[in-house]
């Protein structure tokens, strides 16, 4: 294996229109989405995307509607052909696969969950969940047997013989999840999988997914436009704007160092105490005494530790070894919402 990354996206461009190839050079010379549309009548879908996605982690892709999220995720299983660039999965270029190899890839390696569920209305829940296996020509009975486990796992036992239209949205998406899991693919592509659901059900589904992930360790690429969702489930977050990737990093990196005002707007209203870890604000020498807090503990928990110890200063540790100190004031300052346009966040470091 050449790299530790499960999926690598390199210099990916996607332009929609009658003659996309000839538009690449305009974009490479810096033409933006609106100019390309006004002057050449082409829609800029993706603009020079580079993203390395580690295995067994949840990579979130975020951005406003129309920023290119769906376009990007569909390049990974090549539901959309790029205008230029490479998509490499496990060291193999997806774009060079022939039809058989590509179908095999879609059947075994990457499965997808859709925003509008995209279940087959004429198939029962059991048949829907087994669809990915049926496509592999596994006999219907065996396919159903294998997918039953996932129907049970997502909590739909007893609904096997219902039809999708008889189920609520949340339950339909559980079917979508079971269908994607049933093929045992290592990569899960989720395009706004929970965006169509009511907030309570959405939180519910996030928990279902996090529980599953703890057990299964899939490489998940998760699209959302909801930052709270992104922060809750993402190990890494990439932010798209008008087809360009404006920032990629861990949730904490993005909150601490938003790349521009677009990102800053995104993180405006989040609960920073749940994202920032004490390690990011540790400074100076460890104090002689005080409660010990691991550096990857988020501020929300750290505040509880420090206040129940009735201390003002805590020892920040790295795998048990003291590395610095953090005070109550540090933490309170860190979680204060920054003024719009205020670049002062970096001063907390």
């Amino acid at each position: 294996m050449v790299s530790d990354y499960k999926v690598q996206i390199k210099n990916l461009y996607k332009i929609f229109g009658p003659d996309p190839k000839s538009m690449v050079s305009h974009v490479q010379q810096g033409m933006g989405k609106s100019d390309l549309l006004d002057q050449h009548g082409h829609v800029l879908g993706l603009n020079d995307i580079n993203l390395d996605i580690p295995a067994k982690k949840v990579q979130v892709v975020m951005g406003l509607s129309g920023s290119g999220k769906s376009t990007l995720i569909r390049h990974i299983n090549r539901l959309i052909e790029p205008t230029a660039g490479e998509v490499i999965v496990d060291g193999e270029n997806v774009l060079e696969m022939n039809e058989t190899a590509l179908r095999n890839f879609r059947q075994k390696k990457a499965s997808m969950v859709f925003q509008k569920f995209a279940l087959m209305p004429h198939r029962t829940i059991a048949e829907n969940a087994a669809y990915g296996l049926t496509v592999q020509n596994i006999p219907e009975d065996e396919a159903k047997e294998r997918s039953q486990r996932w129907i049970d796992r997502v909590g739909l036992s007893g609904f096997e013989n219902h039809y999708p239209a008889q189920l609520s949205g949340g339950m339909q998406q559980r079917v979508g999840l079971a269908r994607a899991l049933a093929t045992d693919a290592e990569i899960l592509l989720m395009d706004e999988a929970f965006s169509a659901l009511d907030p309570l059900i959405r939180t519910d589904m996030q928990s279902v997914m996090l529980d599953l992930q703890e057990e299964l360790h899939k490489t998940i690429i998760f699209i959302t436009h909801d930052l709270d969702e992104a922060l809750r489930i993402g190990d890494n977050i990439a932010i798209l704007r008008d087809g360009r990737m404006v920032q990629a990093g861990t949730p904490q990196e993005i909150v601490l160092k938003p790349a521009d005002d677009y990102v800053r707007d995104f993180i405006q209203d989040i609960n920073r105490a749940r994202v920032l870890q004490v390690g990011s604000m540790a400074h100076g020498k460890p104090p002689a005494k005080g409660p010990k807090i691991e550096k990857n503990v988020v501020v929300e928990e750290a505040l509880q530790i420090i206040s129940s110890a009735k201390a003002k200063t805590a020892i920040v540790t790295d795998k048990g070894k003291p590395v610095g100190s953090v005070t109550l004031d540090d933490m309170i300052a860190a979680i204060a919402r920054p003024e719009p346009g205020d670049k002062g966040i970096e001063t907390y470091r």
Binding site: L102, R103, N104, R106, M112, F114, P121, Y131, G132, Q136
Partner: peptide
């Protein structure tokens, strides 16, 4: 729905 079928190969 067709896209879903495609995505499963």
């Amino acid at each position: 729905v067709l896209e879903a079928a495609n995505s499963f190969g």
